[in-house]
Design a protein around this nucleic acid. Sequence first.
DNA 1: CGATTATTGATAGTAATACTATTATATTTG
DNA 2: CAAATATAATAGTATTACTATCAATAATCG
Lengths: 224, 224
Amino acid sequence: MATLTFKLNEHLYLRDPQHTQLGQNIIQKSVEMIDRLGFEHFTFKKLAEEINSTEASIYRYFENKHKLLVYLISWYWHWIEYRIDIATGSLQNSSDKLRACLRLLAQEKKYDEAFEFVNQEALHRIVIAELDKTYLTKGVDDYNKEGLFRGFKSVNRKIASVILEINPSYEHASSLISTILVTGHQQLFFSEHLPSLTAIGTGKERYTKLYEFMENVVFNAIQS
Amino acid sequence: MATLTFKLNEHLYLRDPQHTQLGQNIIQKSVEMIDRLGFEHFTFKKLAEEINSTEASIYRYFENKHKLLVYLISWYWHWIEYRIDIATGSLQNSSDKLRACLRLLAQEKKYDEAFEFVNQEALHRIVIAELDKTYLTKGVDDYNKEGLFRGFKSVNRKIASVILEINPSYEHASSLISTILVTGHQQLFFSEHLPSLTAIGTGKERYTKLYEFMENVVFNAIQS
DNA sequence: CGATTATTGATAGTAATACTATTATATTTG
DNA sequence: CAAATATAATAGTATTACTATCAATAATCG
């Protein structure tokens, strides 16, 4: 199977990590470490030790650790969009398309061999726990000007446009989808840490329940 | 008018800031500073300078700046719950109650003179920008065991129970409400910084539009 | 009212973080 | 093979997030 890479916004990095061995090590190991340590306890120094490199070398790839996080999560959204395209490409009916999108979002993420050096299960956990930190910062407007949130926005726009195919007069499409994109991850976080805030439970079936919840919210909202 | 205070969980602080002048200064000024600087750029040292005290003194009230944030946001949820009680106390009809809750959540927050030394407008902006940071941390389970999220949970439970009055067989009440509580703030953030992710617009009318969106989502979800 | 106790201020210090700078050593490329 | 480029090794800085100590002040209590 071919190994794929995504063309991510150039402002996310100083040197493209996909092009070199060191860059790939940085990506691979940082996913594992952020997942394990959490973003606040993760540092370039610790990362450097684990990949037998140096802090200074990592700084040649990423301006700072926050941009690395934004990079990883941007990668995630590009991956999601790619999978949405595959899952909906053969579908004619818009409601089917929307259901496919929701299913994909709610789904447990398993290793996708088309993408070496990124552990998608770990990355999914990072998105669950750290997504909001990418934009909840005073630098959000500068980041946005540089286009660093394009991945997220693109997925949002794509699914919102499916909603407008189903109901062209629905007024809250972009709000509804951004809500779903964020809550999809948040509910999984609550499921693990604050279960009284969610109805999806804590067992294996939570992915199915999450899908049912999303379907309930989205289809009823737009078909009124 | 009487000045009210909330009894917040004791694990939120080391010394109760509501009881002393220094404590009140810490609360008042930290709200203003976190709003202005953002949580990451806010430090106890800077705060100490502005209230003419010292870092060490502030550390006698709060273990660290994260717990101060959790304290402030906990205060916010207690305030919201208090206002929900007032707004729904005289209502008989459950749908009216639910609408009153949503209106209150979506509403622009104005200064409430019953609570001195807390600038609610600034605090609302803090909740919009920093809420998720209170629980998106590796320490979430310890915090939760200490009951630090009681305020949030309590509001969630209260509104979820109104939903069950309307439709006792609705299965996703707690998920629906936690989604609304979080998205209510998130959409306002998007409105200001990432407007393509929201349909509520960027003008003064965004609070009304947010309410309409919430009503659309909630009432359609539960009345199916 | 004076003595005890609690609270705050002043000051100092530490380990870790988030970088930047410099130079030497590999490695690649033309 | 020479030149350019990437990386490693090392050092250094300002800031952060604390902790510790002790003196000064304010509150309270017998």
